[in-house]
Design a protein around this nucleic acid. Structure first.
Lengths: 206, 206
DNA sequence: TGCCTGAATGACCGATTGGTCACTAGAATG
DNA sequence: CATTCTAGTGACCAATCGGTCATTCAGGCA
């Protein structure tokens, strides 16, 4: 049990874990939240039992997958903030980035959205109410922090962050399933305008 | 098989169907989309087999429940339109009405939102993609018609209707689970302002 | 009263799935 | 080469759930 072997084993384990989460991603992309452990095992090219050598149970596996998926989005969001654009530009880029991210990786879309309701048919009851998806919370929290320093009223920041997040999600919700929708940049601009300027400007001049 | 007996039987059937859908509503309020046929039967005070005398299968039953739930909301929405308020007033009332409706009847909330992803763990695959919830579509369609006659660009109406619908849903998504959130009217006003005027007005004056 | 109809029942079935564990195969060890 | 060890396996298990159907029983009818 030298330092060397520790590292080697750790690397192997990491490789296994990664290939499993990637397989899970493919399985979920195809079957959504209905993906079975068998599906995931097949897609990963290993036996079902092996999954349980690296993950305690289905929950832990799906949680890890969701976590990994969103961390990629978080990185891109962070890039947007790093550019330190003016407020309006930041909003537009945030919208465009999230839209484009899920448009390119529809597999992550199903992970992100269908896992929002954990379990679905399982004993979710009210027990899990206290534990909403942690990863999504990180995303909303990041937006909150931005709004807190960019907006007039700090106390509105959390609500606005959630609003922005859910709004883009709503557009995705419509975009992803259908095939030949409006161009992505078109949708992004439409949504950004709406977010920034509201409905009032669109009222018919009577 | 007189007209009389026809009516009597029809009434009895209707009574049964109603009491089942009400039971289903209670079951779903407690267990969400995970509610079992047994749960529904228990909550309705009848045996599981009896459910299948009045509904073909689980899908038909849940569909009927969801339909009935949303028809009540649609009626209230229609009342708002009937008042023929100016544009801004209509939007505010629409937001407030939907928010209040689900705030008073949280059981309907779970029906409405959790059933959006039909099946969950079942063979949803891509087969059902072609059949999104019909009831919700009616609601969005109604909003679309309003926007078509109230706004400048007719072709934007569907997108705006979906936007409004999902936006309010987003706030509900946050409101319902938590206990002591902001007052309902407060949330409604906040959301309406945002929808009407956008984020721009909230930027910190630099 | 005795029979008959059909609504209601709930034990049962088949299918599915998360999770387990006795077993295997192949590499490491001596 | 023989032995040990362990990552990997997949048949198997228990539990769950939608749906069925032989049976029951209450109420109307002769």
């Amino acid at each position: 049990m030298t330092q060397q072997s520790d590292t080697r084993e750790a690397l192997l384990e990491r490789f296994r874990v990664d290939s499993i989460t990637e397989g899970a991603l493919r399985a979920i992309a195809r079957k959504g939240a209905a993906a079975t452990m068998q599906d995931i095992a097949d897609e990963s090219g290993i036996a079902k039992g092996t999954l349980y050598l690296y993950f305690k149970d289905r929950d832990e596996l799906l949680h890890r997958v969701s976590e990994g998926a969103l961390s990629q989005l978080l990185a891109k969001i962070e890039d947007v903030f790093a550019r330190a654009l003016p407020f309006e530009g930041t909003i537009r880029e945030l919208v465009l980035t999230k839209l484009r991210f899920f448009d390119e990786r529809r597999d992550l879309y199903r992970v992100h959205f269908e896992l929002r309701f954990p379990g679905g048919r399982d004993p979710l009851c009210d027990a899990r109410k206290a534990a909403p998806p942690k990863e999504k919370q990180m995303y909303v929290d990041r937006l909150t922090r931005y709004f807190e320093e960019a907006l007039e009223n700090k106390e509105d920041a959390p609500r606005l962050a959630l609003f922005l997040s859910e709004t883009v999600a709503a557009v995705l919700f419509r975009r992803i399933p259908e095939q030949g929708g409006p161009k992505l940049e078109n949708d992004a601009e439409f949504l950004s305008d709406l977010l920034l300027n509201g409905l009032s400007g669109r009222r018919k001049k009577s």
